[in-house]
Simulated assay, not measured.
Amino acid sequence: MTPIPHIGAFTGILLAAGRGRRFDPSGERDKLMAALDDGTPVAVAAARNLLTVLPHVVAVVPAGCEARARSLEAAGCRVTVCAHADDGMAASLVHGLRASLHAQGWVIALADMPWVEPATIASLVDAVDEGAHIAVPTWQGERGNPIAFSRGYLPELLGLRGDAGARSLLKTWPVTEVPTADGGIRRDIDTAGDLARGADA
């Protein structure tokens, strides 16, 4: 059953600026454009999961990845190019935030995690709507992605630097854990062998 899109002031930020060097050290094959079992590119599948729930999704891509940018735009994302993406994940995140400063909250997702269920994303937004400032999903007692933030943490998010990303804030600020039955929150794609849905997590 497809969840009803969540109506609210939340924006999704899809971090799609990674180079995927573990996937293909030569840099010739774009991990985020690699096809899953059903032929959908990895990043497009991740974007669709967000767009099922959130009416606005900002996809952050690096310079020089035109095919990636076009595919995400066609999927329904607002694409923005981060010239400093190679400085680390925080640079891409801050870039995406600055492109959506109007939002009342954000769901920050990784483009190499295509199996997160839309229902999980909706549950994170609901948790923040109900008073949580940071909401993170769990599966079998382990935290995963994406992460939802209320607007109250915007200054801390904009102050991030390096490759730590938003997860570094989870070590110092109160976090609401949202239990799920969604193993996709713990599955990313590092190698070509990870592309099959039935691959080991």
Rank of each mutant, 00 (worst) to 15 (best):
D163E: 15
L195C: 08
G183Y: 13
L97V: 02
G159L: 06
V42W: 00
L72R: 01
W115K: 09
V42T: 09
I185M: 05
D188W: 15
R21K: 15
G96T: 03
T40G: 06
H102R: 08
A127G: 02
M33S: 06
S26M: 14
S168W: 11
G64A: 09
S150H: 06
A164K: 08
D200K: 10
H56I: 09
G64R: 01
P118H: 00
P41T: 05
W106A: 03
T52G: 04
A35W: 10
W173I: 08
R68W: 09
A91Q: 01
V81P: 01
S100V: 03
A181R: 15
T176N: 11
G131A: 08
A74F: 12
G159W: 10
Q104K: 10
D126Y: 11
E142L: 13
A181C: 08
I13W: 13
A148T: 05
L54Q: 06
G12E: 05
R167H: 14
R161H: 12
A119I: 13
L97T: 00
G184R: 06
T172D: 14
A85P: 02
F10V: 04
R143F: 06
A119E: 15
G8W: 06
V94H: 03
E130R: 14
R19C: 11
L169E: 05
A67Q: 12
A181L: 14
G183T: 10
D112G: 01
H56G: 03
V125H: 05
P114H: 09
D182V: 09
T138H: 06
L195Y: 08
P55D: 15
L93D: 02
L124A: 04
E73M: 05
G64C: 02
D38P: 03
L157K: 00
C82I: 02
R186I: 14
L101C: 03
T80Q: 13
E130P: 04
I134H: 00
A59K: 00
A122L: 05
K171A: 15
A196E: 12
A35E: 13
A181I: 08
A192C: 10
G105M: 06
G183D: 12
